[in-house]
Design a protein around this nucleic acid. Sequence first.
RNA 1: GCCGGCGUGGCGGAAUUGGCAGACGCGCCGGACUCAAAAUCCGGUGAUGGCGACAUCGUAUCGGUUCGACCCCGAUCGCCGGUACCA
Length: 822
Amino acid sequence: MNERYEPKEIEGKWQERWERGQLFKTKNDAPGEKFYLLEMFPYPSGKLHMGHVRNYSIGDVQARFLRMRGYNVLHPMGWDAFGLPAENAAIKHGARPDLWTHGNIDEMRAQLKTLGFSYDWDREIAMCDPEVYRWTQWIFVQFFKAGLAYKKKNPVNWCPDCETVLANEQVVDGKCERCGTEVGKRDLDQWYLAITQYAQRLLDDIDEKLGGWPDNVKLMQKNWIGRSTGAEVDFEIEGFGEKLSIFTTRPDTLYGVTYMVLAPEHPFVGPLTEGTEYEGAVAAFKEKLQYYSDIDRASLTLEKEGLYIGRTAVNPLNGAHVPVYIANYVLMDYGTGAIMAVPAHDQRDFEFAQKYGLPVVPVVDPGRGDLDLDNLSEAFVAEGTMIHSAQFDGLNNKDAIRQITDFVEESGYGKATVNFRLRDWLISRQRYWGTPIPMLYCEKCGWVPEKEENLPVLLPEDVQFTGKGSSPLTTSETFLHAACPVCGGPAEREVDTMDTFLDSSWYFLRYTDARNDERIFSDEAVRKWMPVDQYIGGVEHAILHLLYARFFTKFLCDIGFSPVDEPFTNLLTQGMVIKDGKKMSKSLGNVVSPEEIIEKYGADTARLFILFASPPEKELEWSDTGVEGSYRFLGRVWRLVRAALEMEGGAAGAGSGDAEKELLYALNATIKKVTSDVGGRMQFNTAISSIMELVNAAYRYRDGGDPDGALLRGVCEKLILLLSPFAPHICEEMWEAYGHEGSVLREAWPEYDEDALALDMEEVALQVNGKVRGKAVVPAGLDAAALAAHAQGLPEVQALLEGKTVVKVIGVPGRLVNIVIQ
RNA sequence: GCCGGCGUGGCGGAAUUGGCAGACGCGCCGGACUCAAAAUCCGGUGAUGGCGACAUCGUAUCGGUUCGACCCCGAUCGCCGGUACCA
């Protein structure tokens, strides 16, 4: 063993040995219970950032710990390799997206290896490889066959100057991110996946099956799915053939309807106003609104604005005639695109009614004297008693919801119904660097999928990256035209590619059988490994990625390909890495690159610091002096281990004194703590701190009276094993120095000895009326009553109680005695 | 606005079930080693008062429950995240 800890000499050596010895390779038939441990795969931007290091350090500690505990661990890594940056590189520098991406992958893979992460690289996948996206296409075809993929017109952001489609993120203040031109809209025919058909199951299973997920993530998913129950009620429009259907969650307020509102895009608006004096005004209103909706309609709280369209609707319950409006606050894509307006009990309707002088009819009485129902200053939305509502008067409005809904159903005016906020998933992207959508359009047969045996539909290489036009695939001569898979006639291929979220929705299934070229994965492999037992990644994926992955898994389960319908049993969302209180970013100039830290201190220090500084789910504040501290700690371990190696075996009779007992106590307490912190709570910061305490205790022992070298070496060996998941390289080196041949990874995780933790005497706090007044040493293991009784006999207690009357004595075993005096 | 979460020394954080607040680390102060420095090792470090043993205060603020509250309950303030005309 070198005198000094030199990470540079050690780390490369062990990384090479691990690779040569195939230490991280996972065999399906290896002994031990299976454990599928997965960290979210990265986009291959070219460089790892600290967020990656954190994510993968957390995962690697788990992986190594579980292997030592005898699990057969699947710990794979791959690349979320499709995406815009590669395409931008092609447009700007003429790079080939595939070569650019693979170059980045090579760099990042090398970086991951220098951090010593224990991935089974034989299962590595990149979603941009034809052998992989072949199966992304295959899944799409299955969706299509199941009737869950369909085409629909949808407006996209269109920059008239760049002549291209822009993602919402590329539209800044209504202008094109690249050229600053005002962005317009264009209707395009686009592919959708019918995730809404899974809405109820996705919602129900959050409570049923996701017990191992954090509550905040579950809540976010629930809100995103956004189920609300209510009723659809049909209103007649005077002089118009069709009934207007509205959705409401407040059927109890039906008697308070004073007007109706349609979304401006509602299909009835045209027919209702055509040829009337209102036609021009309606067109102008829609024109204006379209402009607003371009400019981040979501981020503005627009003032409510509307227009009377010259029509009257009839309330089926009380026959009241109310005016019909169109307004900007009613959205076409929620509910039925039309609402009944109850200004007395809905704040939005209230504001609109105030502005346009519409009547306010209260139907729920709060029963509060201080509220003048005829002169409301805002809508009353809380609970109350029904009024002005015919036979329902006097009911509590909560009960009235059900009763009026029943009445509406019985009378044929409408039906009880459920609405979801969740929309179908638009997956078409007018981009090159994504999975081609394997569909063709034939004049005769319509939209048909490519035959499965012909997959993958390859991305063409004869494409021009001009940054203009709809999809770059339209510029390929070889791609566009093909034979119809059904009739053999001329057909045109779909030129759009898929949203990259489809790739990440199933990649974890492919790892189970990454090299299968006949099937998406074998039944046997997927049954062996799924579900993922522990998934780790950033909370920013709490909604979309995780929801889509759940949706895919449910679908693949339904068609008999996945053995489970929830992919991730346990989820850990790790916090961001920040510096000076802010997210690390180039523009703030506060980025710390992993490379420079590894260069200076080595991978073990980087891993140790990042795990020690903060519990995993919290933000981590980067601290240069903290890194220094972790490095110092590893040096301290190194010197301790080395010193123990050179110590004498100890005098006869040594090894059983108080100092030895104390050291062994510290050792076993640490084993217990680290085991539960890593294996149970996943609090790596406290696991590391307890290892630090053990090291401090070992130093104390060494510097004490008559240390026994053999005993200390024994403690050091356990210490090495405990530390090895966090800082594997240094531990391998020390393990070798202690004369062991194999890797620490092949060693069993240390067990603790209950006996060593059992003490004869223990210290408890003495409290008087809940305030600590002293300490006492008492026999260990007394129960509450015995402890209380024992304490009263102690001289130090007697001293505290002089002249006082004892009311009660409470003993808490192992902790304290509290004496309550008058 | 609505829905979550959080608030503990100079700093990151610990306290696992209502039971000794501040583990561990950083920083700072002091000491040892050294011609000196670095490195290393040892000691101290919530605040106030006291030479001192010790006392009082202290987990955002105010109040409550309890023998006992960072932890439970109520109100308030602040920060962070999600979401936003969802009828």
